[in-house]
């Protein structure tokens, strides 16, 4: 019995250590944004009074508002466009299922095995020829349609009763009407989960914007952060503040929508 007790204590200690490890960087980042660089370096772990000063310095050295708006616009447009294209396809693959579409789906799934690194050179050349550098359209196109999201919607459409579709047809509703007026509202939680993961991926995307968002005007938040460490000395105060500002939207999404977030991460794995 005593041994069992010890094991339980060891488990809790282990969990606490792991949790401390996973939370500490967040704490460090938030505290850091309220302190000045010298104090952060010394390892100060208490809230300071330099938040406003850091903000003023950050806002005067970089185009903060512009980058935040770019990130927000790109991520939102990406989310809406991806959800539209992929949910329509996932629904189509499931509800109008036949041999031809199953073959096509299998083919599309192959794209999940293609590393982005193998595509970036030709994509860059295509996009610069099409004059899509520095544009939102250029930002969203490579991730607008993903086999992951299509498959996710196809799996969830499995639970959508065929009788409902047939009944709606008898009632005279068109095929598009059935999708928009019945499927979308019923599947709202699925759409929410897909929206969260898509938004987060687009918001945090780094490599692709690094390649195509070349002008200052089109810079996104991750690019802005990395720009801050390009000089000889790094101001950790403003660095931590910019990291905090970038993390805040996804952190809020995480805390308020954790269940949907987990569903989205898991995708069609059950």
């Amino acid at each position: 019995m005593k041994q069992k007790h010890l094991a339980a204590i060891a488990t809790y200690v282990f969990l606490c250590v792991v949790c401390l490890f996973s939370v500490f960087p967040f704490y460090f980042m938030i505290v850091g944004s309220t302190n000045q660089s010298v104090d952060i370096v010394k390892g100060r772990l208490f809230f300071g009074t330099h938040l406003i000063e850091n903000f003023k310095t950050l806002a005067s050295t970089v185009k903060l508002g512009n980058a935040f708006w770019n990130s927000m616009r790109n991520a939102l447009v990406n989310t809406v466009a991806s959800l539209f294209v992929c949910s329509l396809a996932g629904y189509g693959f499931q509800i109008y299922r036949d041999k031809g579409k199953d073959t096509l789906m299998g083919l599309l799934l192959l794209s999940m095995m293609v590393p982005f690194a193998a595509l970036m050179v030709p994509l860059f050349r295509m996009f610069s020829q099409a004059r899509l550098l520095d544009t939102t359209v250029g930002f969203i196109l490579p991730t607008i349609s993903t086999a992951f999201l299509i498959f996710f919607f196809r799996q969830s459409a499995e639970s959508f009763p065929m009788e409902t579709v047939q009944a709606a047809r008898v009632d005279g509703l068109g095929e598009l009407g059935i999708f928009f007026r019945i499927f979308v509202p019923i599947m709202a939680p699925t759409f929410a989960a897909a929206a969260i993961v898509t938004f987060m991926a687009a918001w945090n995307n780094y490599l692709w914007p690094l390649i195509i968002m070349q002008s200052q005007e089109s810079q996104t938040m991750p690019l802005l952060i990395t720009g801050l460490t390009a000089g000889y000395t790094t101001d950790y105060g403003i660095l931590m503040l910019s990291v905090t500002i970038t993390t805040l939207p996804t952190l809020i999404l995480f805390f308020t929508q954790q269940k949907r977030f987990v569903e989205g991460v898991l995708g069609s794995v059950k």
């Binding site: 792991v18 949790c19 996973s22 939370v23 960087p25 967040f26 460090f28 980042m29 850091g32 952060i40 987060m200 918001w203 945090n204 780094y206 991750p222 952060i225 990395t226 460490t229 950790y236 660095l239 931590m240 990291v243 970038t246 993390t247 996804t250 952190l251 999404l253 995480f254 805390f255 954790q258 977030f261 987990v262 991460v265």
Partner: peptide, 21 residues
């Protein structure tokens, strides 16, 4: 929740934090 928490940050942000460490 605390164990999942790091998923809420970007790779760039986590890189910057650990680089500072």
């Amino acid at each position: 929740t605390l164990i999942f928490l790091p998923c809420a940050t970007s790779l760039v942000s986590s890189a910057m934090i650990f680089k500072s460490f």
